[in-house]
Amino acid sequence: MAGNNNSRTMRINLKVWRQKNQNTEGRLVDYALDNVSPDMSFLEMFDVLNEKLVAQNDEPVAFAHDCREGICGSCAMVIDGEPHGPQTGTTTCQLHMRTFSDGDTIVVEPFRAKAFPVVKDLVTNRTALDRIQAAGGYVSVATGNAPDGNAIPIAKEIADMAMDAAACIQCGACVAACRNGSAMLFVSAKVSQFSLLPQGQAERERRVSRMVWQMDEEDFGSCTNMGSCAAACPKEIKVENIARMNREFGRAMIFGRDRKQTAED
């Protein structure tokens, strides 16, 4: 793709975080790229950089990516201090170089939080989120045939809210954006998607409690209501969900039938 449209190419200066592994110190390294097409995605620009580095016998920049169509949540970079870059509601793979200008210097760093250790360069280990999900983010059901889709009536507004919460792709941008390294937006989206629906009622108190215990155990920070998480979320999950989680957790604390048992889990 690069080079097809030479009249419109850009020069981009990059400062990229290079870190050999979890145990070594990292640092920002300068790279310059000519002939960057405005139509490239941010990740394609990194592909070009890596081709150049490989040709020079240098170590390519490690970065996580998978679907490259904005739905898998793998691509995780902080671009000029903003998770997934300057555009709202966009994953890094869907961010295009036309968002930047010729001659721009762009600083690219990994997601930073104690719970997300750097594996290499821009790749972080975000499995802490999986463990929170496994702690309670599910509905236990008897297996068998799938029930009829319309057997349980759900108001359109409620279904929409649950669907909006379920749009979370678990990329971790909320944690990366938060100055406290808090995972509350993620956890609240997962809590909300179930607690809004009838199927999620049976386990609602246990679910929120166990997910919060796990979140604390994984060393995520606390929420101070700054709202950076929602601004950075590529799926535009709202802080309303955090308020809902606050209600759910308070409800479990005050009225939870199995509160004592859940607290001792």
Binding site: G81, E82, E109, R112, A113, K114, F220, A231, A232
Partner: peptide, 15 residues
Amino acid sequence: TKPNLYAVTPKSAKG
């Protein structure tokens, strides 16, 4: 839990 912030401080709502 957030030992390091970023090299650039965003001015948008992501800050």
